[in-house]
């Protein structure tokens, strides 16, 4: 079963076409990496998946529903590029707010918050106002918010930008654990070592999926040794095709 299914999705902003017939499928329990150059359309695709924007063409299904269907919202965890936290609330207050919005009962909410704070190693900072935390700590809090409602689908938009290597390793260990527990994860990243840890990777450029497969398959297709070389090869090939078609 596909947890995410995009069919020829288009998104037009005035004269600019951010997505140009994007099709991709993410299976249940899969860890899927979405990579591509800046401005390729990754964030727009994610905003359509989480229901913050509506596609101007094509069809999108998330967990079997249209992305803007209210049914999806309780099943989805989203970590945006920005930390997107209330700077004047404490770590616990931020988590508590989102727990209330997800309708988690008080006792369960408190238990879950304590569990997540332990997971992201912020138990000692629970009562600290977010604005007084380091960037890395704010990222960890943001991840905890995304995980709060035990989502079936976790969508993470560049979750490790500005995060130190140790924290990145800890994040990825947790993503692996979630995948083993059956959570579907879609992650965008600019780090090829992170893309290598995904089961499948989709390369998006100019609003289209230009390549898709396991990291090994992608490297094999363009006969290179690293995923970075594959990325450059696919991106370059796509650029050449775009110029020819223009």
């Amino acid at each position: 079963m596909n947890t995410i299914q995009l069919e020829r999705v288009e998104k037009q902003f005035g004269a600019f076409r951010a997505l140009n017939g994007l099709s991709l499928r993410v299976q249940q329990g899969e860890l899927y990496g979405l990579i591509g150059p800046n401005g390729a359309g990754k964030s727009t695709a994610i905003k359509i998946m989480v229901g913050l924007q509506r596609a101007t063409g094509g069809t999108a299904k998330v967990l079997g529903y249209g992305p803007q269907d209210p049914q999806v919202r309780g099943l989805l965890g989203y970590m945006p590029q920005e930390t997107a936290l209330y700077p004047d609330l404490t770590v616990t207050e931020n988590l508590d707010l989102f727990g209330r919005l997800y309708g988690i009962e008080k006792e369960e909410r408190q238990r879950r918050i304590a569990e997540l704070l332990g997971l992201v190693n912020l138990s000692d900072w629970a009562a600290t106002v977010v604005t007084n935390l380091s960037g890395g700590m704010q990222h960890r809090t943001s991840l905890a918010v995304a995980l709060l409602a035990r989502p079936k689908l976790l969508i993470l938009d560049e979750p490790t930008v500005g995060v130190d290597p140790e924290l990145r390793a800890s994040f990825w260990a947790h993503f692996d654990r979630l995948r083993q527990e059956g959570t579907t994860i879609l992650i965008t990243t600019h780090y090829m070592d992170e893309a290598l840890r995904c089961e499948r990777v989709g390369l998006i450029n100019h609003g289209q999926l230009v390549a898709e497969g396991t990291p090994a398959e992608l490297m094999k297709q363009v006969k290179v040794q690293t995923l970075e070389e594959a990325f450059l090869a696919f991106a370059g090939r796509n650029k050449a095709n775009t110029e020819v078609s223009a």
Partner: peptide, 14 residues
């Protein structure tokens, strides 16, 4: 601008 509004609107809050 901070992204919290987007985050709120991904939750069940209308």
């Amino acid at each position: 601008t901070s992204g919290t509004l987007d985050r709120l609107r991904v939750t069940p809050a209308t």
